[in-house]
Write a protein that binds this DNA or RNA. Structure first.
Lengths: 327, 327
DNA sequence: GTGAAAGCGCTAACAA
DNA sequence: TTGTTAGCGCTTTCAC
């Protein structure tokens, strides 16, 4: 900036005015300064502005895995809204490990971000509250504010589980399994609870729970499917579409048919769900909108007189071709 | 930091030593300082360190769309490697628009990142060279260094196109279409060139090109498929797996069978490709490895005496069930 | 309409 | 082993 000032034959504060207060500087001067900026290749230093206490343009995003299509889409939604405010996403993955989450939080804080949007593992609630108390807006994503008083953009997963359960009940299913992924995070517990409530409310037995070791497209699923089939359910609700697809494949590999021999319900309605054959019946949630709203809540928290809010989204059942009447 | 110093009854430079030079400070003092840091809730200011000229821990990633599973996986690979160096990803999407790319570059530069990894639209080559010249390492991802002298982690897309072409030729196909997505970026041009080379080398006609307006899972595909079928090819090579899936669906909706009536080849081998039915024949590239290597090149460029390098990955044909002999 | 100067939190060179 | 100090690039207040 000094260089620009020198090149334009003015003082640094005039350059500053051109930048922050263009109206106050004479047109001729301004043009001279702007020309100088181009000549010198001037780039403002965000570090220096931050040091002066100006609001940062960085927003942290901590998800379980930014490589997962679901979280990728979420980040995209966040980015879309942030873009309008000139902010950028600092994206980290935790792989659902509390230590990685803590580290990410630490590194993020050092950059004094405008705020942090997080899909929490659930293990660092206190730390999150501390970050928030220190003045960095924290928005919970896909999680309720349990205890801590924070903003949240959440999905009613109890309803999601119930939707899946009601759908299967209506088709005559009574033996229903729930396939989870070795995790015990709140959104998964809630889905299971909703499913159980639906089944038990109708006098059916509770869902049996089957754990796949890995949540991914491959690995761990095959053993889980053996366990699953040993219980001989007529339907299975999966923790997400990826798991559902893996289950379908494993079931088909055993010579069984979906939905003829086993109905399968996914969760998320990822873009591929509609294009798979048989097309996946699944519980949809507005992923990108979730991200956008989280970003909105984050930016709104900057304003004074703030009260933490929770934006709750209702999931929606999308019936396609992997569920069928029993018999 | 002053607060910590006061709380521990030492000077700021002692606190600094505890942070940067722990060996040189007396154990008792160090423990006192560390206790004070916890008490005060001390968080280092990255802004201040940067202002002092220390290397930044931020790495920019500019992709076409971080919500796209391919780029999401790429970012994850980058993150994996960066993590070991304590760096974080500043992720932006351009939607393949030159103006958005320019803006992202601008915003990134203001944060003086340790480097930038970019899937270029191709329109801002000069600007990239300028950024690099100014001292910020730039690594091209999924692109060759055309003209500009930059590091690159690329895939041999000409080979990729050729692999698809050779496979189809071996199955007896002679009328082959190439379905692109309304874009004209280098990786796509190269695939088409490789495909054309294979076909023409074997005396078959050149591939006809069909443009889908949108690259997404939905939208634009249906009209493109009509155009495609009007030409009555026996096989189609798609610009990526997502497009391939959309094509398969649209073709099936018209009562035709894949691969019976039309063979389809995808590109990328995204995780779902193996789980779709019929399972997708596709050209695979090591996505996460690409990201990791890009990150490696980036960090290596920090070291002195640097010569720009190009890491080239060979794609691999994965034959599944969407291609069949003609007849 | 423009300039001078202080200070944000930190590091590194030097002094004690 | 610990303390003092200058200065990184910017914004902002105040004086001209």
């Amino acid at each position: 900036m000094r260089d620009v000032a020198a090149a334009a034959g003015v003082s640094v504060s005039t350059v500053a005015n051109v930048l922050n207060n263009p109206g106050v500087v004479a047109v001729a001067t301004r043009e001279r300064v702007e020309a100088a900026m181009n000549r010198v290749g001037f780039v403002r230093s965000a570090a220096a502005r931050q040091l002066r206490g100006l609001p940062s343009r960085l927003v942290g995003s901590i998800t379980l895995d930014q490589g997962n299509p679901f979280y990728a889409e979420l980040n995209r939604g966040i980015e879309d809204h942030l873009d309008e405010a000139g902010c950028m996403l600092l994206a980290c993955s935790t792989d659902q490990r509390a230590d990685r989450e803590l580290r990410a939080l630490q590194l993020l804080e050092e950059h004094s971000p405008r705020g942090v949007i997080i899909t929490p593992t659930g293990a660092n609630g206190q730390r999150l509250a501390a970050v928030s108390a220190r003045g960095t807006p924290v928005v919970l994503l896909d999680a309720r504010q349990d205890g801590a008083d924070l903003c949240a953009a959440a999905v009613d997963h109890v309803l999601g589980g119930r939707l899946a359960g009601d759908h299967l009940l209506a088709l005559g299913h009574r033996r229903v399994a729930f396939l989870t992924a070795g995790d015990d995070i709140a959104p998964v517990r809630e889905r299971r609870a909703g499913l159980a409530a639906a089944l038990e409310g109708a006098g059916a037995g509770p869902p049996v729970e089957v754990r796949a070791v890995e949540a991914g497209f491959s690995g761990g699923t095959d053993a889980a499917v053996s366990k699953l089939l040993a219980w001989a359910p007529s339907a299975v609700v999966c923790v997400n579409d990826i798991a559902a697809l893996a289950v379908i494949r494993a079931v088909q590999a055993r010579g069984l048919r979906v939905p003829g021999d086993l109905s399968v319900v996914g969760y998320d309605d990822l873009p591929f769900a509609a294009h798979v054959r048989p097309a996946l019946t699944t519980v949809a949630r507005p992923i990108r909108a979730l991200g956008r709203v989280a970003a909105e809540l984050l930016l709104a928290e900057g304003g004074g007189g703030h009260r933490h809010r929770e934006a709750m989204f209702a999931p929606r059942l999308v019936v396609r071709a992997t569920t069928a009447p029993i018999g």
